[in-house]
Design a protein around this nucleic acid. Structure first.
Lengths: 203, 203
DNA sequence: CAAAGAATAGAACGAGCGTGCTCTTTTTGT
DNA sequence: ACAAAAAGAGCACGCTCGTTCTATTCTTTG
């Protein structure tokens, strides 16, 4: 069983991640978070020791949630086309389910910290890079299995597919527009089909 | 000729837009902006009357710059495929040229204000919507001219094309990765080609 | 060139921020 | 059940923020 400290800490981080996904990590004030969780400023503060440590812990906590909600389910799908689709569809699903109050934690924070050098920025970058590499790797596997055009550049395919889902996320976050999900799924499906068809012709 | 007030105001807004494109509109502090422009807090403040007015003026000023740098040149290209390309290529060009210090003003601020209701959010939304509608309209014109598959949904094509350039911008902003521009231009060109070819087959 | 008016500086305010400190309450191990 | 230890509350600090007020310095115009 977790100690009280750990339980409290996790509950704080849940609130922090939800709040930061909406308003950004810089808007995370110790006082505001304390009010939201029903604690005193100093009581909450003692869990982290500094504001920056709180931000880092929040980033890592959000990454855990993202892994649990998107990456793990996606990777349990069979290799190849199925897994590519599972990752991207799973991503859109996680946005639609509203796992984070403000849409996508890493969308908000990666833009927020793009020009703020430091450990927080670095940590965010690691997680974003990892996501991109998951997609790229899934594309490579599909090529190895002969399901996807071997001539295609995995990085570029990854770029395009990720662009669709990220763009849907942005559009939904700002305008609340659900058609973005329809557009994104259709765009991903069409793009994958075009890459599969090409291979069939050459076989 | 412009009055001194207007000249000073414009110079402040240039600095403000550059700063906000990097750090966001909420990080625009009166004091910081005063230091950056070599003015006193109160002297600068008197140009706007409130922080929110400063933010609104900054948004509009950034929109003026965007129009001058991207929209006007793009619209001067001949209708049809050429104009679609001019708009998207011009957008990428404007990011590459570093017109705004922090990449793209509206990318930063639209995410920042997605969950902050109020006049600033509304103003940002207007400009973003306008950009999307320019692209969509250019696609429709290409269809009318018979250059682009009339079966295609202009909104979805607009979504896809915009997704490519926006994604390149994000990737460049955070990672400084110039390959994103290569990927994005290739993705846009391929997508436009695929829509042109389809039409040729049916003619 | 002087008077009128616009533009800016300087100081001060109340509020909220991150962060230490000390004291009290709650949890834990025996 | 009780002592030891952990967790949290309450308060105070120096700082920066947006904003206001008053005084001073520039521009413009007759």
């Amino acid at each position: 069983m977790l100690t009280k400290r750990e339980r409290t800490r996790l509950s704080i981080l849940d609130t922090a991640a939800a709040l930061a996904s909406a308003q950004g990590l810089e808007s995370l004030s110790i006082g505001g978070l304390a009010t939201k969780t029903g604690m005193s400023k100093s009581g909450l503060f003692s869990h982290f020791g500094s504001r920056e440590e709180l931000q880092l812990a929040t980033v890592d906590h959000a990454a855990d949630i993202f892994a649990r909600e998107v990456v793990v389910p996606g990777r349990s799908a069979p290799r190849g086309m199925a897994r590519i689709w599972a990752l991207l569809d799973g991503f859109l699903d996680y946005i639609e389910r509203g796992v984070f109050a403000g849409g996508c934690f890493f969308a908000t924070t990666s833009i927020e910290f793009k020009d703020r050098p430091g450990p927080v920025r670095d940590r965010i970058g690691e997680h974003v890079t990892q996501w991109r590499s998951y997609i790229e790797h899934a594309v490579e596997q599909a090529q190895e299995l002969g399901e996807l055009d071997p001539e295609a550049d995995p990085r570029r395919i990854g770029f395009e597919l990720n662009a669709f889902v990220q763009s849907a996320k942005s559009q939904h976050a700002f305008f609340g527009d659900d058609r973005a999900f329809v557009d994104a799924r259709a765009a991903v499906r069409d793009r994958l089909e075009s890459l599969r068809a090409k291979e069939r012709l050459t076989v």
